[in-house]
Design a protein around this nucleic acid. Structure first.
Length: 718
RNA sequence: GAGCAUGUAACUCAGUUGGAAGAGUGUUGGCCUCCUAAGCCAAAAGUCGAGGGUUCAAAUCCCUUCAUGCUCGCCA
């Protein structure tokens, strides 16, 4: 807004033989001045205060400047001198009029809120990708909301975005559900609740049986006398923990010994770290026994019918063998029955996911199955190719391990656009096992193959993987193999969008024990609470319950907007690398959640527009007298609105959609203040009504754009 | 043991290339005869985790240190 002054001040600086470009700042309080500069930036003079007064006198002569005041702040060695500029009222008004009228023009143009720098390019966003074994919970939802918002932001910059859900349908976990499902299906039991919720229960129960069986198998290997049932009896527990605690004691004495001597015995060379690792393992094992004894009773109590059925059926079969067998058959796609059974379970759960995600306004373009990738043979091809590189080591059997020597990494940094900061670890990057000794591929290898597949099928110029920060190292470990395979471009353009996990009331959520607040429950609860709040508020305004079918539909739409604002906003308003702790009760208290506040601001704006239309019958065009609306409050709204494009670019650059969320909130806040102080209906004159109405409309456009980026519909009434 | 992230008001968090410490919630007190009070106004509340360094100037950059979370050789 103050461009003219910049050139004038630059001219002055030049006449003082200072070759620096002037940098205008904003004083903390508008009463201090319209803009200011820091004198220290331009002069190393010892007596800055006198110089400041001298400059102030000179600069005051610039046309349009009313006054330049000198403000001195104490520094350790020298004072810090600010020169505060106050513009002549008339000039300020002129500048503001111009600023607002030009600003409004660009806000009402169809390009507003877009910056097509990536036009014609494709971006892939892979997100959510939750295992299809239990319902989506609030923890998964953070991933979905971030992934979806990121996609929407990318679209705003011109990208053609492909949203991918990657289904991990090959693995031990999924085989639990498949076997469990087959067992209950054969007994004629059908789901009476939402399918993913039901499968989640089967999963938790089967996981429990499986873990208990694993514990018992380990006991057998150690020649301990436990029985074969799927329950840890008190006797079993006693035998197991006694054994483990004895072992723990031995390990601890070894560790103490190792602190004083180099080696434990002549033959055995064992490191401290190794011992520590074993100690931790043993401790975990002891905890696990206790935990799964409790989980057993807990699940039996919570899901009695499923539990009893599954326990009866499981005791008739060799669970480990059947599971392993099924999994192998599915991986190789050799048994039509098994394959269709897996797909039946997976697709059923995915249908449940889709339904849930749809409520949250989160669409997907593509669903890709890990099994398809496995069957395509690409993984084996990639492993073989990597195995012949100089970084691969054979580890016995068919095992292949991949190493990350410093020279190799340095070479990659030179030949790609990657920089040191992209490496999440200093020093030696740990080796990566690609194939087990028994010949099966590990997840890491599949992921490398999958990355290549993603690039080759969708031809994106960039891929974003939305995955929690826990996966930083494995995500980085993907890049170097890609580079080694000659896929330099791929390595450069695969980005890990990392976000921290969600804690729920101080406790992490676990699918393994079916302890989660499901995304569905969260949504349902929010709708109920929103309806209660709306009815209360309507009643205080004398509005009755909705009667006709249309009104019910309208109410439902309003409630949906409020629900999405209340659920999506708290998941996106904090920077992704911050761990968040959701307190469901607080999020449902609409006074504590900024989401509904933003909706309210939008509804108020819509209300104004509607009422004015009904009662005033005025025509609004851009051709208005902006000199009527030069107030700070209005300037701040327009400034914010015009900032949207920058904000979008910044959020892409920093991979942080919370910037958009904060912007929406600030804008809503700014509008609320405007709303209180600047009535449109009773403005006093038609001209004033018109110009204020234009601001309201501009605000509405801006906020609904922001909300659209956040995937939140905007409500016209609340 | 090593690496990464975080640490700002009682609570939840913003804070742009270093340039005058910011919101909301909560607390206290005001404001509905007037476009929706899920709102607005005012007040109180801070050693920016601690210590050091660089600088005219540090929440911001560098070093040290403390606290919390996550990760680190065949889990997916």
């Amino acid at each position: 807004m103050y461009d003219e002054f910049i050139t004038e001040i630059n001219d002055f600086l030049e006449s003082e033989k200072i070759m620096k470009k002037v940098n205008l700042l904003q004083p903390p309080d508008p009463n201090l001045g319209d803009f200011c500069i820091v004198l220290n930036q331009y002069s190393k003079n010892d007596d800055l205060f006198s110089l400041g007064n001298f400059w102030a006198g000179k600069l005051q002569d610039i046309e349009g400047i009313k006054e330049v005041s000198v403000f001195s702040m104490k520094g350790k060695k020298k004072p810090i001198i600010y020169l505060n500029f106050i513009i002549e009222d008339k000039i300020r008004d002129q500048l503001r009029t111009q600023f607002i009228s030009q600003g409004l023009k660009s806000i009402f143009s169809p390009d507003f809120g877009y910056n097509k720098i990536n036009e014609g390019k494709t971006a892939v966003v892979e997100h959510t990708s939750a295992n299809p074994i239990s319902p989506l919970h609030v923890g998964n939802l953070r991933n979905s909301v971030h992934g979806d918002t990121l996609s929407r932001i990318l679209e705003r910059t011109g990208f053609d975005v492909v949203r991918i859900f990657y289904v991990n349908d090959v693995g031990l976990q999924i085989s639990f559900v498949v076997v469990g499902y087959e067992l209950v299906k054969n007994r004629g039991i059908k789901p009476a609740i939402k399918i993913d919720l039901w499968m989640g229960q089967i999963y938790a129960i089967m996981n429990c049986f499986h873990t208990i069986q694993t514990i018992k198998n380990r006991a057998k290997e150690r020649d301990l006398q436990t029985d074969d049932s799927y329950i840890i009896s008190e006797n079993d527990k006693l035998i197991l923990t006694n054994f483990l605690e004895k072992q723990l004691n031995e390990l601890n004495t070894d560790l103490e010994k190792l602190k004083t001597v180099e080696k434990l015995s002549k033959n055995e060379k064992i490191t401290k770290r190794d011992l520590q690792w074993r100690i931790n393992k043993t401790k975990d094992e002891i905890k696990e026994i206790q935990k799964y004894q409790e989980i057993y009773w807990d699940l039996q109590k919570r899901f009695p019918q499923l539990f009893e059925t599954l326990r009866d059926e499981v005791s008739k079969i060799d669970l480990m063998k059947v599971q392993g067998d099924y999994l192998k058959k599915y991986e190789k796609n050799t048994d039509v029955y098994v394959t269709s059974l897996f797909r039946e379970v997976v697709d059923w759960v995915l249908e449940g996911f889709r339904w849930t995600l749809n409520r949250y306004n989160i669409p997907f373009d593509v669903i890709e199955y890990e099994s398809d990738l496995t069957w395509s043979g690409l993984t084996e091809k990639v492993i073989d190719e990597l195995a012949s590189s100089k970084y691969a080591v054979k580890t016995g059997g068919e095992g292949i391990r991949f190493s990350f020597p410093k020279e190799g990494i340095d070479e990659m940094l030179q030949n790609t656009s990657l920089v040191k900061k992209d490496i999440p670890i200093k020093g030696q990057v740990p080796e990566l096992q690609l194939r087990r000794e028994n010949g099966t591929a590990l997840y890491a290898a599949k992921d490398i193959a999958y990355s290549i597949q993603k690039f080759e099928t969708h031809k994106p110029s960039i891929i974003y993987n939305v995955i929690s920060t826990e996966q930083s190292l494995p995500q980085f470990q993907l890049l170097f193999p890609l580079y080694v395979l000659g896929k330099t471009e791929y390595a450069s353009n695969m980005k890990h969008y990392a976000y921290e996990m969600v804690n729920l009331q101080g406790r992490p959520m676990s699918g393994r024990i079916a302890a989660y607040v499901t995304a569905d429950a969260f949504y349902d609860e929010t709708i109920i609470r929103a309806r209660m709040a709306k009815r209360t508020s309507d009643a205080s305004r004398g509005i009755g319950l909705p009667e006709g079918a249309d009104e019910w539909n309208e109410e439902n739409e309003i409630l949906r907007a409020i629900a999405l604002a209340s659920t999506r906003y708290p998941l996106i308003d904090k920077t992704p690398q911050r761990r968040i702790s959701l307190n469901i009760d607080e999020e449902l208290d609409f006074k504590k959640n900024p989401g509904p506040f933003i909706e309210y601001a939008h509804a108020r704006a819509s209300g104004v527009i509607q009422t004015v239309k009904e009662r005033l019958d005025i025509d609004v065009s851009l051709d208005i007298d902006c000199s009527l609306i030069l107030d700070e409050q209005i300037i701040s709204i327009v400034t914010l609105l015009l900032d949207l494009e920058n904000i979008i670019l910044k959020s892409v650059r920093e991979l942080d959609p919370s910037i958009i969320a904060t912007w929406c909130y600030q804008l809503a806040q700014s509008f609320m203040k405007f709303y209180e102080g600047f009535p449109v209906l009773n403005a006093g004159s038609v001209e004033l009504s018109k110009s204020r109405l234009l601001i309201v409309k501009a605000f509405k456009i801006g906020l609904s754009t922001g909300l659209e980026i956040l995937g939140i519909p905007s409500a016209d009434r609340i």
